[in-house]
Simulated assay, not measured.
Amino acid sequence: MPYELENRLVIGVASSAVFDLGESDAVFRREGEAQYRKYQEQHLHAPLGKGIAFPFIKRLLALNDLCSDPEDPLVEVVLLSQNDPDTGLRVMKTIEHHGLGMTRAIFMQGRSPYEFIPALNIALFLSASKRDVDAAINAGYPAGQVLDSQFDDDEDDPSLRIAFDFDGVLAGDESEAVMQRAGLDSFHAHEVLNVAQPHNPGPLKEFFVRIARIQAAEEHHKISNPGYENRLRVSIVTARSAPSHERALNTLKSWGVMANDAFFLGGIEKRRVLQVLKPHIFFDDQSAHLKSTSTVVPSVHIPFGVTNQVG
Rank of each mutant, 00 (worst) to 15 (best):
Val234Pro: 03
Val237Phe: 06
Arg37Met: 14
Pro55Tyr: 05
Gln309Cys: 11
Ala242Phe: 13
Ser149Thr: 03
Glu6Ile: 10
Tyr36Glu: 13
Leu60Glu: 01
Glu174Tyr: 11
Ile11Pro: 08
Ser112Ile: 10
Phe54Val: 07
Leu44Gly: 03
Arg210Ile: 12
Phe19Lys: 04
Phe283Gly: 15
Val18Met: 02
Thr251Glu: 06
Val209His: 11
Val234Asp: 00
Leu63Ile: 09
Thr103Ala: 14
Phe282Cys: 07
Leu79Pro: 09
Gly305Lys: 12
Trp255Ala: 05
Ser149Asn: 02
Phe28Ile: 11
Gly183Glu: 06
Pro118Thr: 00
Lys38Pro: 01
Gly51Tyr: 00
Thr293Pro: 06
Gly305Leu: 13
Ser24Trp: 14
Ala53Phe: 02
Tyr36Lys: 15
Glu269Tyr: 07
Val209Asn: 09
Asp285Gly: 09
Tyr3His: 09
Ala262His: 14
Ile106Met: 08
Leu44Lys: 14
Asn194Cys: 09
Asn83Met: 08
Ser112Ala: 14
Thr94Asn: 06
Arg213Val: 13
Phe304Met: 05
Pro70Arg: 01
Gly32His: 07
Ile162Glu: 02
Glu174Thr: 13
Phe54Arg: 07
Asp156Ala: 15
Pro203Asn: 05
Ala259Val: 07
His97Cys: 04
Leu60Tyr: 01
Ala119Arg: 12
Ser112Asp: 12
Asn194Gly: 09
Leu126Val: 03
Asn250Pro: 02
Gln145Val: 13
Pro73Leu: 07
Val192Glu: 08
Gly227Gln: 08
Val234Ile: 15
Gln197Ser: 14
Asp148Lys: 15
Arg8Pro: 03
Leu74Ala: 09
Thr293Lys: 00
Gln82Tyr: 05
Arg181Pro: 02
Arg161His: 07
Ile57Arg: 01
Leu160Pro: 03
Asn64Asp: 07
Asp285His: 05
Ile122Val: 14
Arg59Gln: 06
Ala105Ser: 14
Val297Phe: 04
Asp152Asn: 10
His97Gln: 06
Phe166His: 05
Gly311Pro: 03
Asp69Lys: 06
Val91Glu: 12
Leu61Lys: 13
Ile57Asn: 04
Ser159Met: 10
Ser127Phe: 06
Val209Lys: 15
Phe19Arg: 04
Asp284Ile: 04
Val169Pro: 02
Ala26Lys: 15
Pro158Trp: 11
Gln286Ala: 15
Val27Trp: 02
Thr238Trp: 12
Arg247Ile: 15
Ser241Asp: 14
Leu274Lys: 00
Phe151Arg: 02
His190Ser: 10
His301Leu: 15
